[in-house]
Structure formats: structure tokens, C-alpha cells
Amino acid sequence: MSGHHKESCGSHCGCHTPPSNGGNDEGLFNRRNLLKGAGATLGVAAFAKAMAPITEWKESTSVDEFLQTHYRELSKDQLAEVITRLEEETKNDYGAEVNISDVRPQKGVKFGYALNLSICVGCRRCAKACHEENNHDRTSGNSYITVLEMSKGSMDMEQGHADYNHPVPQPDKFYMPVQCQQCENPPCVDVCPVEATWKEPDGIVVVDYNWCIGCRYCEAACPYHARRFNWTKPEVPKEEINIEQGYLSNRIRPQGVMEKCTFCLHRTRKGKLPACLEACPTGARVFGNLLDPTSEIRTVLANKRVFVLKEELGTKPNFFYFFDE
């Protein structure tokens, strides 16, 4: 290094350029810097072009949505504002006038569900009713219920098939619909990094669709395949939209978030029955309040041979299966 460089160090740092460039390339507008500038400009332009599709993303347009806080931290007024916004968005995106309500849990109620495996015929009407009631994406045919066709003589799910496509019931089979078990000890709630899913006082595990970040850890943690992800913005024709919607249940979900069965809380918290139960032609489904000793579900639990799925995992489901005889 020459003395020249020693002197200039500290002021313009030109001293750090290799000596070979020292002479005629000094100054801001030498050939090398111009080339670098052109390269950098080109790079930035290419990056902007590459990222351009993101500006066409509809969900990103709402600043209010971006800044919205967690459901449980919203004041009454804030929630009312959010609901108005969501109703407007549904009108704009889907053309339907919907009514989104925020039904809270009732005191002294804890929901339980039981299913009679002796009489379920595997018709999948429950799954279809769920699909319609909960405004599921029509293209994927999504539903919160998976009906397994099981071989008689085995309770092992390994022997079951969810993709059967023939008249039911088959003589050597029995049928086991599986949906969210509303576990007492839900692994999905534990793993959520942002508390976007939690257990309500009436036992229902819900998701705040506006808080979920879409990491899908809960989907990996659930032992019952009860959770679903919105891989794209749900498509529902205007005339098929169920306009009676719950904030924590069947309102049309945004793209990129988790969803799950909520025991139709927008119905059940108002004293109605879940859509899957109403659709069942055999009466295999029993729904009710576990805290009410006179309820039908308590009678079932007390008198039938009842079991829960994957009891060994310690999730303590509030969804029970039983046999008649």
C-alpha cells in the first residue's frame, strides 16, 4: 500500500480499493461504479417485477385486517366494527348479504356428542350437511367429517377406508364418522404458537380466523385429522351461501388459515342441534349438555358400552362412540 492510501484512510475510505484501481478509476462516476449502479438498478427492478404478483393479493388490501387484534382482546365496539367489515367484504367478494353473529357460550353447558356405530349406515349425509352448513369451499368438497368404512371384526383404522364409492351399507362393514373430538386436553391448542385456537368454556375448540398465521402445526398435532387448512380462498356460489353465520364458526374463512368443526356453535349455542345430527337418517347421533344429568347424552354415557378414539393418547375426547347391543 502506498503512502497516498495511508493518508486518505479515514476520510473517504478510497484507500480500501485495490491499488490497481487507484489511478484513473478514482471518483464516483468511474466505469466500475457506473456498472455497479446499473447492475443494482437492474437487480431492484427485477426484484420488484418478481414480487409483483403479491400486489394482486386481495386479502392484503385491508389495513384494518392487518392491524386487527386477537378475538379475545376485542372490545364490544371493535368486534361490531370487525363484523360489519366482514359482512361488507362477503358482499363484495361473494355477492351475498350475510348475518355474522358472535354467539357466546352459555353458563352451565358443556357439549358432548355420541355416535351409535350399530346403526350408522355410512351414507355420508352428515358430511354433506356439514359441507353446506359451514360454507365449505365447493371445489374441494371439504367437510369436517370423514366417514370411515371399517371391516367388521376390527377396530383398527388401518383396516378402514374413507374413499369408498359403492352402495351402503355393505354387509361385512360398519361405518365410523370421525370429526373434531373437542378434546378435554387438545394437542392442537397446546402447539399453536400464537394462541389463535383455544377451548371455550362450553368445551368447543375454536379458531380465530383473523389471528391464525397458517403454520399448520395444529394440523400436524391433531390425532383425528379434524383440522382443515384453507389452501386457497373458498369458492361458494352466492345462492348456496348459508347466510346465518357465526364469527367463530361457519363464516366464510379467509385464505391461508386453519378451520375446524365447532359443533355448529352458531346453532347449538342457540339451542338448536348440529347440522350433521339433523341430516342423519338413522338417528345414530346424540348431542347434548354433559352437565345436565337428564340429557339424552348422559343416558347414553351411563347405559351404553361407550368408547373414545385413541384413548391411549390422553386427549380425553368429548365425542363418544357406542354400540346398541
Binding site: 389471528w211 398465521i213 403454520c215
Partner: peptide, 28 residues
């Protein structure tokens, strides 16, 4: 991790104090 998120715009929900950080229960 960000590429895997369904909602990368909500990344801030994971930032302690500003968002809701489910610590120590969630291994994530």
C-alpha cells in the same frame, strides 16, 4: 418458515409482547 406460513402478513402475531406468544406451552 415464512415461506411455509399461510398468512405471512400476520408474522407479527408471533412477536412477543406485540402479538400473542404461546410460551412456554407451544414448542414452536
Amino acid at each position: 418458515v415464512i415461506a411455509d406460513l399461510g398468512r405471512p402478513d400476520r408474522f407479527w402475531h408471533m412477536i412477543p409482547l406485540i402479538g400473542k406468544f404461546n410460551w412456554p406451552i407451544s414448542m414452536l
